[in-house]
């Protein structure tokens, strides 16, 4: 494993910890999209089915379990915690997730490496992850004012993807015959989804202001 990949994973993990701490400390999930969190849970469940039949490394297994557990913990807080769930912007978080799930599933049926259940589900998880942040970005756009922690959470999620891109370039030049087109194309799309957000995040940071999205 190279340094970019490790940095990417750690940034991903940190983004989740930041979100969980925000929810626990402020007892509020205002500005957080439950739809996006549920999409991530679907992504992790469909991708990590291989926990049952393949072992890559202890690191790999532990990280997968952490991602699964934290995803469901966040959903539990937003749906069931008696204080936190009242702060959820249900009326604003109205993205139609089926518009993401169905096309991703169809694409996974059409473009995959092998027509098997686990392989199609794995491919589906790759496509879905690329667009899973969209409900969150739409919610942000609607509520306009972005609190620092939510902003940092999204910034870290975007950074994690950018680090994975660098990791793939590194692997391409250091590992003979290494290529994974489905992952590369989806990952590039996923990183591009964050570009607009990055622009406003960096601008706010440079001007030392609270982040604001244009109307």
């Amino acid at each position: 494993m190279n340094i970019f990949r490790l940095a990417g994973d750690m940034t991903h993990l940190l983004s989740i910890i930041v979100l969980l701490l925000k929810i626990q400390a402020t007892k509020s999930c205002a500005g957080v999209s439950l739809k996006t969190q549920e999409l991530y849970a679907v992504v992790f469940v469909t991708r990590y089915l291989d926990l049952f039949y393949s072992f890559i490394s202890l690191y790999n297994t532990v990280m997968k379990i952490i991602f699964l557990l934290t995803a469901f913990t966040i959903i539990w807080y937003m749906r069931k915690h008696k204080v936190v769930c009242q702060t959820y912007d249900k009326e604003q978080d109205t993205f139609r997730v089926l518009f993401l799930i169905v096309p991703c599933f169809v694409l996974a049926l059409l473009v995959n490496h092998e027509m098997s259940v686990t392989e199609v589900l794995w491919t589906f998880s790759i496509y879905l992850e690329a667009v899973a942040i969209l409900p969150q970005l739409v919610l942000l756009q609607r509520t306009k004012n972005v609190d620092n922690l939510t902003g940092n959470y999204i910034f870290m999620l975007g950074s994690y993807r950018a680090l994975y891109l660098v990791n793939w370039v590194y692997r391409y030049f250091t590992e003979l015959g290494y290529r994974q087109w489905i992952v590369w194309v989806s990952g590039t799309v996923q990183t591009c989804v964050y570009l607009d957000f990055f622009y406003y995040y960096v601008q706010a940071w440079r001007n030392n202001e609270r982040m604001k999205l244009p109307g």
Partner: peptide, 10 residues
Amino acid sequence: NGGKERKDEL
């Protein structure tokens, strides 16, 4: 590994 993806990434 003949083109088949290595699923060692998260």
